[in-house]
Design a protein around this nucleic acid. Structure first.
Lengths: 140, 140
DNA sequence: CGGTCCTTTAGAACAATTCTAATCTATTGA
DNA sequence: TCAATAGATTAGAATTGTTCTAAAGGACCG
């Protein structure tokens, strides 16, 4: 067997999500999921696709990212106003955010514990708990 | 009455922050700090100022908000790409975020505990831990 | 008061994202 | 296999939130 990834190939993954396996979606899926856990911006991913000579517009990159989110294949991480990160790791986990470089680093879900979460406001239910640990270059 | 606020009036607060007490800054400080803890966007605050017939431009609202953050009077909360919230509560606490309405609700710092925070990446130090609990309208 | 430096301003510029309407393509079923 | 159709992609415009710019205004010190 081959690794823990549930979908060995992009085609199967798209089928499972009910998305037509177009050339663009296949290429984006491979870029996203073939190299382990990643945090990318739309611009970055578009750049990678273009570099790989896959003809794809930025609009399609955004469309695809949102469809992948809808299908549960991707998660959006909000750390900065005015820029979204897309995380290929959809398991329970949190993040370090390194402000200087704009980089995200995973914290495995088991490593961290959020205790005494109070009752959510009346009429609402918890959808997700996000923990962002903002770090800065250590002062010498 | 005096209440618990350390700065009874906007003038003193600005002086303490080393900011010239201009008409705009005084008015914005009052709008922000005279009604208890608030979460506002720049647009909202600008709207309130205009409604109160304080002549102030949106650029000045942004400038002022950032100066207040620099002075530790305000905190920025990032929950949504493309929109910043400014929180007048700078004590240790976290937030519920109600997605449908875009509203933030404070969770007092003592109520919640983040345990087993792992070592930050090499060369970095923790600046802040943000916990955002995203909630949605409860399915009936 | 006058000079200096800080503030404010309108509007332009900018960056990320979404929208639009036209074109293209995967799929389906004859 | 092919045509019809529903869905996908596209370039470029539009939108949104925020920052910048250069000029005019205001606070403060002497």
């Amino acid at each position: 067997m081959s690794g823990s990834r549930p979908f060995a190939n992009a085609l199967e993954l798209l089928r499972g999500a009910g998305l037509r396996p177009t050339r663009q979606r296949l290429a984006l899926a491979r870029l996203l999921f073939d190299k382990g856990d990643r945090h990318v911006t739309a611009e970055q991913l578009h750049g990678e696709a273009v570099a790989a000579t896959v003809p794809v517009s930025l609009a399609t990159v955004y469309n695809t990212l949102h469809q992948f989110i809808g299908a549960g294949l991707l998660r959006e991480v909000v750390v900065n106003p005015g820029r979204s990160y897309f995380d290929t790791n959809v398991s329970d986990h949190h993040h370090f955010f390194i402000e200087e470089s704009g980089k995200l680093v995973d914290i495995p879900g088991g490593d961290i514990a959020v205790a005494n979460v109070p009752e959510p406001p009346a009429g609402t239910a918890i959808r997700r708990v996000d923990v962002i640990i903002r770090v800065e270059r250590e002062p010498v």
